[in-house]
């Protein structure tokens, strides 16, 4: 059988071709992908979206005074303000509403904020709120974490409009009555989530938990036009 073990020209040509293929091809790939359109401006057309009745809208007549905001967009939800709570006037921003609670010289605040999708999911938000409570100086025991809170202090409820909500109560794991803490509810609606958060001292929150839950359960569509 013919052998070519010492044919240098044969080996040299093979070196060249194999290097060419194994180096050139991937280099071409890298060059094309590096020149890919990451910084390229893509232009396309989009149909004008038609307003959907009942869809969560985070626009309000007061969008921080931004030029071009549509004053015709009105909030589509309503709720029952609990007795003894004061709904603050809207001053713009993301909030649907802000409530202040004053009892015996102490104050607490409740906010309603809508966010897109599930805003990271309940677990991630419970972890974040736990960090926020600890950052106020409240000494939450180390054994308390998002899993134990969701297992032992999570309540489910249904609003008037049949939205399924979840309430997480941080007061049972807050040591002192004067410690700052939260009660938070999440109401998922139409591709968004409304976060209702009651913040203040443990004692005032414990007294107002029932009213907080009633506020969340009263969340419904606003069917009165132009309200």
């Amino acid at each position: 059988m013919k052998r070519k073990p010492n044919n240098h020209r044969y080996i040299n040509n093979n070196y060249m071709y194999s290097i060419l293929i194994t180096v050139l091809l991937p280099a071409l790939f890298v060059v094309f992908t590096a020149c890919g359109g990451e910084k390229e401006v893509r232009k396309y057309q989009e149909e004008q979206p038609t307003p959907k009745p009942g869809k969560l809208s985070m626009s309000s007549p007061h969008t921080g005074g931004m030029p071009g905001s549509n004053p015709a967009m009105q909030p589509h939800f309503k709720w029952d303000v609990p007795t003894g709570w004061t709904e603050e006037p809207k001053t713009g921003g993301m909030r649907l509403a802000t409530f202040s609670i004053k009892t015996g010289g102490k104050t607490a605040e409740c906010t309603m904020i809508p966010l897109s999708g599930d805003a990271g999911g309940l677990q991630a938000n419970v972890e974040r709120w736990l960090d926020q409570v600890k950052s106020t100086g409240t000494a939450i025991p180390d054994k308390v974490n998002a899993d134990t809170l969701m297992k032992n202090h999570l309540e489910k409820f249904l609003t008037k409009a049949q939205f399924p909500g979840e309430l997480v109560d941080f007061t049972p794991v807050t040591p002192k009555p004067t410690d700052q803490t939260f009660i938070v509810a999440v109401i998922p609606i139409e591709g968004a989530s409304v976060f209702v958060k009651l913040m203040g001292e443990k004692s005032i929150l414990a007294e107002n938990k029932g009213k907080f839950k009633a506020l969340c359960e009263s969340f419904a569509f606003n069917t009165a036009p132009g309200k």
Partner: peptide
Amino acid sequence: TKSDVYAMDSA
């Protein structure tokens, strides 16, 4: 009736 969109990948 339509909007012209000029978009850039944010990653």
